[in-house]
């Protein structure tokens, strides 16, 4: 798989993503500066965490106007897998590639700690190798992760299986106590109607090696790799 990691001014998890994909999982990775306008020869695109443009205006708002974003939009509309992690999720929301918006955490604090999330849908390239109800332990680090959608939009998202992850207790129960930021219905990750664009607040790239305390994040990247490999044409002869 050849993945592109988009780097905005203020991204700070781009190297972590590159490290996991290239160093841990042995994949080919292109580091794509946000000022570029083309995404060629890529199987997947990742928008990493950080504080793109200092979160000026709103988290992700200015980054959504970056020169690379029309190419990201075209890549997504053509069915290409796009993963937004934390600030990358916020960029995808602001770009209109995912539904909903982020508010400040209801607890008025930056939340930086491990959480548990439950897999709600396996229809995305990033979760197809997981099983519904599977619990992952991943770290979060955000001040604006309080997922919000107006009632009609929320109903649509839930009815069309666009909720991919929910914050949960270690045993998988989705309870208010497991919600770190006030997100509606404990939503931690949503996907596009087609399932190929996914955004999540937790950081799988920070939990992909045993030395970091959890390898659960690697499952999301491995799922993506398996998806990409399965789409490759089988060599003849």
């Amino acid at each position: 798989m050849r993945a592109g990691v988009v780097i905005f001014p203020g991204s700070n998890c781009d190297r972590d993503c590159v490290h996991v994909l290239r160093g841990v999982l042995g994949q080919d990775v292109a580091e794509v500066w946000h000022g570029e306008t083309a995404l060629e020869g890529l199987d997947a695109v990742i928008l990493p965490g950080g504080f793109a443009y200092g979160d000026y205006l709103r988290a992700g708002a200015v980054a959504a106007t970056s020169p690379i974003m029309p190419a990201v939009r075209a890549f997504a509309q053509a069915g290409g897998p796009v993963l937004g992690i934390c600030n990358g999720f916020q960029v995808l929301l602001e770009a209109g590639l995912l539904p909903g918006a982020m508010l400040r955490n209801h607890v008025q604090k930056f939340q930086c700690r491990p959480v548990h999330i439950r897999v709600e849908s396996t229809r995305t390239p990033f979760t197809r190798a997981l099983r519904e109800g599977q619990v992952l332990r991943l770290p979060i680090a955000h001040g604006e992760g309080n997922y919000y959608a107006p009632p009609a939009l929320l109903a649509t998202i839930q009815d069309s299986e666009q909720v991919v992850f929910r914050y949960c207790a270690p045993d998988g129960r989705v309870v208010p106590e497991a919600n770190p930021n006030g997100s509606l219905n404990n939503i931690a990750g949503v996907c596009s109607p087609g399932g190929n664009v996914l955004g999540l607040m937790p950081h799988p790239e920070r939990a992909s090696e045993a030395i970091l305390g959890s390898e659960d994040g690697r499952l999301i990247f491995e799922s993506l790799i398996a998806f990409v490999e399965s789409r490759r044409p089988v060599p003849v002869g």
Partner: peptide, 10 residues
């Protein structure tokens, strides 16, 4: 362009 349809419903 660039905004989801759900944004303008409210």
């Amino acid at each position: 362009e660039g905004r989801p349809s759900g944004r303008n419903t409210d």
